[in-house]
Design a protein around this nucleic acid. Structure first.
Lengths: 193, 193
DNA sequence: TTGTAATTAGATAGATTGGTCTAATTAATT
DNA sequence: AATTAATTAGACCAATCTATCTAATTACAA
């Protein structure tokens, strides 16, 4: 028997398409086709495309933070090493897929930020989840004396996330690996006490 | 007599609208109306919307780098101070306009990166212009011993640009001033030798 | 002034989009 | 087996978008 197509499959496929091609460049037609469901089912699951978009954002947020939490709980490494390891893994993944992915939150913020307040809220909400996860690790590292205290935990987290998101943008613009490498180099510098 | 509406006015208005609302969220209808020209004139100036989009990107690149060069030639300040001053001014501007602007290159990269190779090229080309301008200043600062040499000039430039672009994304997502402040704090740290 | 070029408003075409609806089929439940 | 619920394909609609075209007007140059 075939595996049943459920709501989560559609969300995952939508996440994939939006990350690759953006929100407006992905039609409901394509989502439906790629997810292998019918038009009727799509509009049973979701009120409209915007509703779907926001659910995709939240799905992406949970999907990402779950993985991040997992990596940042690796007690074989100290907090600083965990962060570096996490980004090493992420960047490896981008490289493997020829730098075609990007961060969905970055893309959606840019594309829909000023348009629809629901999207703005969803972007900020999920960015704040990212911040929370990273900040916990940085606080632990600062307390243990393995992460620099030159900037407070929240500020250092925002800096690190900014640096990473910005590097992904440069990567996607066609520079590929170089900005990621610069990020890795500088990350080690700013984390070191 | 009224000031004549020329091609440059349309480019400037397009730049403004694309920065505010994105490429797909801005119709030719709106561009034409806001620029105060006729439909016919628009398609006399530009082959199609994509052609217009790319010319807007290059216009934004020149417009930005011109201003950046001007600020980075202020010999009353040393190179490090010039960079900090430049970002202070930019951030002041964002604040004054209630954080509604963003970087056009970031937005276009995200929205059209994987879609149209002409756009990808235009984004990378203009990002490289930014890099060239910043890198010259950083090299000067490193040679003069007022900017850190922990990372090479190109790497430090990419890092700084990433950090800034990423902070703008967080800003636009609704966090407003906080990520910008974190950026300013960390910028001083990474530039200091 | 006359003739040429540029610009205008706006109708219109053609394609695509998001979203609804229906009638048939499949799956689940009692 | 009988009944109810879920899902399907795809026709369909209204709105929107890019782009073209026309006919009238304006600006400019000889």
């Amino acid at each position: 028997m075939n595996i049943k197509h459920n709501k989560e499959d559609v969300l995952r496929k939508g996440m994939e398409l939006f990350r690759l091609n953006g929100y407006h460049n992905t039609g409901t037609k394509e989502i439906i086709k790629e997810a292998g469901i019918s038009r009727g089912s799509f509009y049973n699951f979701f009120i409209d495309k915007d509703d779907f978009g926001i659910q995709v954002l939240d799905y992406y947020g949970v999907w990402s933070t779950d993985y991040m939490k997992e990596l940042l709980n690796d007690t074989n490494l100290n907090p600083k090493q965990r962060l570096i390891h996490l980004f090493d893994l992420f960047i490896e993944g981008y490289k493997r897929d020829h730098y075609k992915w990007g961060c969905l939150l970055v893309g959606m913020t840019q594309e829909l930020g000023q348009i629809n307040p629901s999207f703005t809220n969803a972007c900020e909400r999920n960015f704040e989840s990212f911040v929370a996860v990273f900040q916990a690790c940085i606080e632990e590292g600062q307390a243990a004396g393995v992460i620099s205290k030159k900037q407070d935990a929240r500020g250092l987290t925002l800096t690190m996330l900014s640096m990473y998101n910005g590097a992904l943008v440069l990567m996607k613009s066609g520079m590929h690996h170089e900005p990621l490498e610069a990020f890795q180099t500088q990350l080690a510098l700013i984390l070191t006490p």
